[in-house]
Amino acid sequence: MDRTVTNSRSFANPLHAILLAFPVALYPSALLTDITYLNTAEIQWTNFSSWLIAGADLFAGLVLAWALLGLFFGRARHSKSRSMLYLIVVAAMFGLGVLNSFQHARDGWHSVGTLGLVLSILCSILALIAAFIAYSTIAAEKRA
C-alpha cells in the first residue's frame, strides 16, 4: 500500500510556537531553582524562581488566549478534539502557574515549600505536554 504525504504542517503556527517556547523553558527552570533553594536556603534562588514563573505566566497567558481563539475561530485544519485537549492543558498550566506566583510571593522559606515545589513540577509537566501537542506534525494522509 502506497502512502503519500501530501500536506504536512505543525499544529501551531510559528508565532504561537515561539510564545509556547517560553513556558516550556521557564517552568522547568523555576523547578530547578526551587530545588536549589530547598537544598541551600540561599534566598536568591527563590527570587530567581519568582521571576522565572512570572515570565512563564505571562507567556502562558498569551498562549492560552491563542488557544482559545484557535478553538473558536481557527480554520478547521486539525481535529477539534486535539484543540480542546490543548486548550485544557494550557489553561491548567496557566492557572497553576498563577497560583505558583502567589505561592512564591510569600516571604522566605514559605515562598517554595511543598506547594511551590508541586506546582512547579505540575507546570513543567503541563508545559511539556502542551509542547508535544503543539509541535508534533499533523500529517494529512492520502491513500494512493
Partner: peptide
C-alpha cells in the same frame, strides 16, 4: 487533567 483545568482558574480567584 480535565478536572484540574476547570479547577485552576476559579481556584485562584477563590483563594484571592
Amino acid at each position: 487533567m480535565i478536572r484540574l483545568a476547570y479547577l485552576a482558574l476559579p481556584l485562584t480567584i477563590a483563594l484571592a
